[in-house]
């Protein structure tokens, strides 16, 4: 598959008189291939939006190489800009214009047929509200309009920064369906979001960024599998005795509430056999599979001290700074 987005060693620092020098992105790599729906995750202030802005030529990178649809960005981005639809954070539109007029204006500026405006308004569910002024739109409607503006060009690559911002549950579901439908039609989608469940549902690939560095990338199922500790929830009549029996069988087990959590289990029948041989019958044996949220929180260190309010930028890198790249293996 051909690369649609390539970022290698991207570094960006911001300097201000008040807060001094701040590294926003620190040698970040990203590879998005054609046809992927690629999730881009990271805590607040981890460098997601800066990365997207640098990729789209809105901020100047200090160093690194970027390419969009095979063209170096931002130098030759204008060559492919007509095939890239993007929204970065929540775009602001002219409040006095209607949704229709906003899109018609962009269509004029981008040389897109005006007939496309009705199509995209329909796609994002604003067909009946297109004649209303943007300043009367709710946050979710503005977000839909933003997505419509990104779709106006009928893009080959769609870059969406927090597209679900302000959307109600039905809107989130519609957005998910829209992205699936676009992907089915061959559009490559890079989507950043905080709604991890959505990313897990929509995306086939994911890249996680923390403190400006990539901490994981690969297929979603492989990233999850890479964090599978082979844990099982076990319910038995005598949990304390069961722990002793499992320890004797060289398995790690702890009592958690009224149940046991047994880890490092490659074959779950071992658990039921060890306990059953001693007359302890297993009432429940449930595999504890990691979800994207737990992997995200683990990789970014965002859940290290649940009792302490976490500050923006308090995320961390995995121990030793290793990057889990399931396409390439583990980079030290």
């Amino acid at each position: 598959m051909s690369a649609v987005i390539e970022i290698e060693g991207l570094r960006k620092t911001f300097q201000s008189l008040r807060s001094g020098r701040r590294v926003a992105v620190d040698g970040f790599d990203l590879l998005v291939e054609a046809g992927q729906v690629h999730g881009f995750l990271g805590p607040n202030g981890s460098g997601k939006t800066t990365t997207l802005r640098a990729l789209l030529g809105l901020v100047r990178a200090d160093s690194g190489r970027m390419a969009v649809l095979g063209e170096p960005s931002p130098e030759l981005l204008p060559r492919v800009a007509g095939q890239v639809g993007a929204i970065v954070e929540s775009p602001q539109f002219f409040g006095n214009f209607s949704g229709y007029r906003t899109l018609r204006l962009l269509a004029h500026a981008g040389g897109v047929p005006v007939s496309r405006v009705d199509e995209v308004l329909d796609l994002v569910g604003l067909h009946d509200r297109g004649d209303e002024r943007v300043k009367g739109y709710s946050l979710g409607m503005k977000q839909r309009l933003a997505v419509a503006s990104a779709l106006l060009k009928d893009p080959r690559l769609l870059i969406l920064d927090e597209p679900a911002n302000g959307l109600d549950p039905a809107g989130i579901r519609e957005m998910r369906d829209l992205m699936r439908s676009l992907a089915a039609n061959g559009v490559t989608v890079l989507v950043s979001s905080h709604i991890l469940g959505e990313i897990q549902l929509i995306c086939d690939h994911v890249t996680i960024i923390s403190q400006g560095r990539r901490v994981a990338t690969g297929r979603v199922d492989e990233v999850l599998a890479g964090h599978d500790r082979h844990e099982f929830l076990v319910r038995v009549a005598e949990p304390e005795r069961a722990v002793e029996l499992l320890h004797a069988a060289e398995l790690t087990a702890v009592v958690d509430g009224g149940a046991l959590v047994v880890s490092g289990v490659s074959d779950p029948t071992v658990v039921s056999r060890v306990l059953g041989e001693q007359g302890l019958w297993v009432g429940e044996l449930t595999p504890l599979r990691p979800d994207l949220e737990s992997v995200f929180l683990e990789l970014t260190g965002a859940y290290e001290h649940p009792s302490v309010p976490r500050q923006v930028g308090d995320s961390s890198l995995p121990q030793g700074g290793a990057v889990i790249d399931l396409d390439r293996g583990v980079d030290a």
């Binding site: 789209l56 775009p91 602001q92 002219f94 500026a109």
Partner: peptide, 14 residues
């Protein structure tokens, strides 16, 4: 300040 220029630059990155 409103981000209108950014919007336009996403369309015409020149």
């Amino acid at each position: 300040t409103s981000g209108g220029v950014v919007n336009l630059l996403l369309w015409r990155p020149r």
